[in-house]
């Protein structure tokens, strides 16, 4: 025993040294280190979950933005269609009105022309009748019943006119 070096007080001294070492390390090293590690783990956990949350938020807001964009696009498309339709309608009505105006104008012009022609024809007929009467008087040297003659001439003229129109 002695040759090996076994010594009771030394054994006790080592035991005491070890116990004191455990106590000091526990108080000043293990406890704070453990706490720091736990705290760090907690912080990292928090950070990770915060990042996860942020990622989810970003994803959802991304979806919302996407939705809004789609909405806006649809709205824009709708407005564009509306405007196109309105302009189409406007163009059609305008064109219709223009055509109507043009037609009315043409109608009026035609009526004017008709009237002018009628007037001219009337005038021509009148003067032609007179002329014919005068000519006939001169030809046949006799005065005919003026009333009968005019009727006769008008009849002739109308026949002529209906022939021309037909």
């Amino acid at each position: 025993m002695v040759e090996l070096g076994i010594n009771l007080p030394l054994l006790i001294a080592y035991l005491v040294t070890f116990v004191i070492l455990v106590a000091i390390l526990y108080q000043f090293a293990y406890k704070p280190l453990m706490a720091a590690m736990d705290q760090r783990t907690e912080r990292i956990q928090e950070g990770l979950s915060a990042a996860e949350r942020a990622r989810e938020d970003a994803a959802s807001s991304q979806a919302a933005i996407e939705e809004q964009l789609n909405e806006a696009r649809r709205e824009g498309q709708r407005l564009l269609d509306q405007a196109r339709e309105a302009s189409q309608r406007f163009r059609e009505t305008e064109m219709e009105r223009a055509r109507q105006e043009a037609e009315a104008f043409a109608e009026r012009a035609r009526a004017d022309i008709q009237r002018e022609r009628d007037a001219a024809l009337e005038e021509l007929r009148a003067s032609f009748g007179d002329l014919a009467i005068t000519a006939a008087e001169r030809v046949i040297r006799r005065s005919l019943d003026r009333q009968a003659h005019e009727e006769l001439i008008t009849q002739v003229l109308e026949e002529g006119e209906s022939l021309r129109r037909g």
């Binding site: 002695v2 010594n7 030394l10 001294a13 040294t17 004191i20 070492l21 000043f28 090293a29 704070p32």
Partner: peptide, 30 residues
């Protein structure tokens, strides 16, 4: 040393030095 004789030996001294180094290492680290 006899089984019950006490003296501070070189091994005990070195254990104390080692303990001090451990304490310094960890306390400074923590």
């Amino acid at each position: 040393l006899g089984v019950s004789e006490f003296a501070i030996t070189n091994t005990l001294l070195s254990a104390w030095v080692a303990s001090l180094v451990i304490i310094l290492f960890f306390v400074l680290g923590a």
